[in-house]
Simulated assay, not measured.
Amino acid sequence: MIQTLYIARHGFRSSWTNGDRSDRNDSLSELGLKQAQDLATYLASLAEDKKPTAIFSSPFHRCLQTSQFTSIALDVPIYVDHWISEWYSDLTASKAIKQPEPPSADILRVDFPEIDADAWSSLWYPPSTGENVSQITERMSTFLSRFIPKVESTLSPAKHERILLVTHAAPVIALVRNLLHGTESRVKPGCCSISEFERNLNSESEESGWVPIRIGDCAHVSGDIREWGFEDYY
Rank of each mutant, 00 (worst) to 15 (best):
K50Q: 13
K50P: 03
K51C: 05
P52V: 00
A54H: 07
F56N: 07
F56I: 07
S57Q: 11
S57R: 13
S57L: 11
S58C: 01
S58L: 03
S58I: 00
P59R: 00
F60C: 07
R62M: 05
C63D: 07
T66D: 04
S67V: 05
S67M: 08
Q68H: 06
F69M: 04
F69C: 11
F69L: 11
T70K: 04
T70L: 01
A73D: 01
A73L: 05
A73W: 01
D75L: 15
V76E: 00
V76R: 00
P77L: 08
Y79W: 07
Y79D: 06
V80M: 04
V80P: 10
V80L: 09
D81V: 09
W83S: 04
W83H: 11
W83N: 02
I84A: 01
E86L: 03
W87C: 00
Y88A: 05
L91H: 04
A93W: 06
A96Q: 14
A96Y: 06
K98S: 12
Q99E: 15
Q99M: 15
P100Q: 09
E101L: 14
P103Y: 12
P103Q: 15
S104F: 10
A105I: 10
D106P: 03
D106R: 11
I107W: 14
L108N: 11
D111F: 12
P113N: 15
E114C: 09
I115Q: 04
D116P: 01
A117W: 09
D118L: 12
S122M: 05
W124K: 05
Y125F: 11
Y125R: 15
Y125N: 10
P126H: 09
P126G: 08
T129Q: 14
T129N: 12
T129M: 10
G130S: 06
G130P: 08
G130V: 00
E131P: 09
N132E: 15
V133D: 14
Q135M: 12
T137Y: 01
E138W: 06
R139E: 00
M140V: 09
L144N: 13
S145L: 08
I148R: 10
I148K: 02
I148F: 01
V151P: 13
E152G: 09
S153G: 07
S153K: 12
